[in-house]
Simulated assay, not measured.
Amino acid sequence: MSSIENMISLVRDHYSTDKFIPLHEPRFRGNEKKYLEETIDSTFVSSVGVFVDRFELMMQDITGASKAVAVVNGSASLQVALRLAGVKQNDEVITQALTFIATANAISYNGAIPVFLDVDLDTMGLSPKYLGEFLEEFGELREDGCYNKSTGRRIAACMPMHTFGFPVHLDELSALCNKWHIPLVEDAAESLGSLYKGKHTGTIGLIGGFSFNGNKVVTSGGGGAIITNSNELGTQAKYLTTTAKRPHAFEFFHDDLGYNFRMPNLNAALACAQLESLNDFLIDKRKLAEKYAVFFETEGIKFRQEIPDTKANYWLMCVELNDKKEREEFLTTTNAHGIMTRPIWNLMYRLPMYAHCQRDAQKNAEYLEERIVNIPSSAR
């Protein structure tokens, strides 16, 4: 049999089914139904309820952050995180083109403009090397921050994304951002449970955002979270995402442009039950990753693994094929046999709304775009 057929057999054996196998589906094997019933019985199903508070405390405990704020989805978490970092209309935010659309959209929602820099081959995330080269060529420090000499716009933030849960080189990125007075905002949407040198992703930058979409390691159906080690920013995050309403027994007074980004208590109930199972999910997924690693090494195919000093959550596992033609054959054959696989995202500057954005050569991003394929990664 071919390598692809062997992989199909491995996946079907692992999940013990001859039916369609999705890329990543949620598992509900804890208190999900119990907590949802409690929420319904309480009648507090919307944005106020005990599970919202519990979810925020659980996220603080899991990540080690000083403050966590529940929001409606991961995109909202990034949008508000950037605003809290000081991003304003016509500013620039440095990020990567090899990412999910939400990263770039969150920048645009703030009226800012993305600058796309290349990724590292080992992490598939924003490269300190290319960030440093860009800032040396285009960066200019002024009294109120760093500016892009080629556009005249302020570089208000740098937002790397931890691709598929693999942490980027955060120490090097942090050092560069500190040198150039640029706030570091982590797009940690895919990396719940991932560690960099023992610290949870999202806690090393000024602020971080997570997603709890239906295909994540832990899901609330739809939901997100903002985390930070700044109590002041955390308080402001909670205020802005709950419509910027001043507390009062009965009056509605809003004194800033806030957002109705509140996570409903129903979603928070689901999230709390899921977070209780997080460690079990991570253990189960790591066992699958180890099985894949052994298999693909035998087949002569590169299986992407965590780098030293990091611990990945292996949210979406992936292989790196030799070229685009081999990638297409892999995708076509697996999907034809009921095994869901998918290519990595189209690079952001290939999309019409971001085609005008400044970027560098993107050698690594384009290399990975032609070769990376995600494979079934669900906990069993």
Score class of each variant (00 low, 15 high):
residue 107 I to P: 01
residue 128 P to G: 05
residue 111 G to H: 04
residue 101 I to M: 04
residue 119 V to C: 15
residue 123 T to K: 14
residue 108 S to M: 04
residue 96 Q to T: 15
residue 100 F to V: 13
residue 92 E to S: 11
residue 109 Y to E: 10
residue 130 Y to A: 00
residue 127 S to W: 01
residue 119 V to L: 14
residue 122 D to W: 00
residue 116 F to I: 10
residue 128 P to M: 03
residue 116 F to V: 09
residue 130 Y to S: 04
residue 107 I to C: 05
residue 129 K to E: 08
residue 100 F to D: 08
residue 97 A to Y: 03
residue 97 A to S: 08
residue 133 E to P: 07
residue 104 A to Y: 11
residue 92 E to T: 08
residue 127 S to E: 01
residue 92 E to D: 07
residue 114 P to K: 15
residue 100 F to G: 09
residue 131 L to W: 09
residue 101 I to R: 01
residue 124 M to W: 10
residue 109 Y to R: 08
residue 133 E to M: 08
residue 135 L to S: 12
residue 111 G to F: 08
residue 117 L to S: 04
residue 130 Y to R: 05
residue 128 P to R: 12
residue 110 N to R: 12
residue 124 M to V: 13
residue 104 A to P: 07
residue 96 Q to N: 14
residue 98 L to S: 06
residue 125 G to Q: 02
residue 122 D to T: 00
residue 111 G to V: 00
residue 117 L to N: 01
residue 111 G to M: 05
residue 126 L to S: 07
residue 108 S to G: 03
residue 105 N to M: 05
residue 111 G to P: 12
residue 133 E to G: 03
residue 105 N to W: 03
residue 110 N to M: 14
residue 121 L to D: 10
residue 135 L to N: 09
residue 118 D to F: 09
residue 132 G to C: 06
residue 96 Q to R: 14
residue 110 N to E: 12
residue 101 I to W: 03
residue 135 L to E: 12
residue 106 A to D: 02
residue 100 F to K: 06
residue 103 T to R: 01
residue 99 T to N: 01
residue 101 I to E: 03
residue 120 D to F: 02
residue 92 E to Y: 07
residue 98 L to E: 02
residue 93 V to T: 12
residue 129 K to T: 01
residue 127 S to P: 03
residue 101 I to S: 02
residue 133 E to C: 05
residue 133 E to A: 13
residue 95 T to G: 05
residue 96 Q to D: 06
residue 98 L to D: 01
residue 134 F to Y: 15
residue 113 I to E: 11
residue 127 S to K: 07
residue 95 T to Q: 08
residue 106 A to F: 02
residue 115 V to C: 04
residue 136 E to G: 11
residue 106 A to T: 01
residue 92 E to C: 07
residue 115 V to I: 14
residue 129 K to V: 02
residue 122 D to K: 00
residue 96 Q to H: 14
residue 92 E to L: 13
residue 97 A to R: 02
residue 104 A to T: 13
residue 125 G to L: 05
residue 109 Y to P: 02
residue 98 L to H: 11
residue 123 T to R: 10
residue 136 E to W: 15
residue 124 M to Y: 14
residue 108 S to H: 00
residue 97 A to M: 06
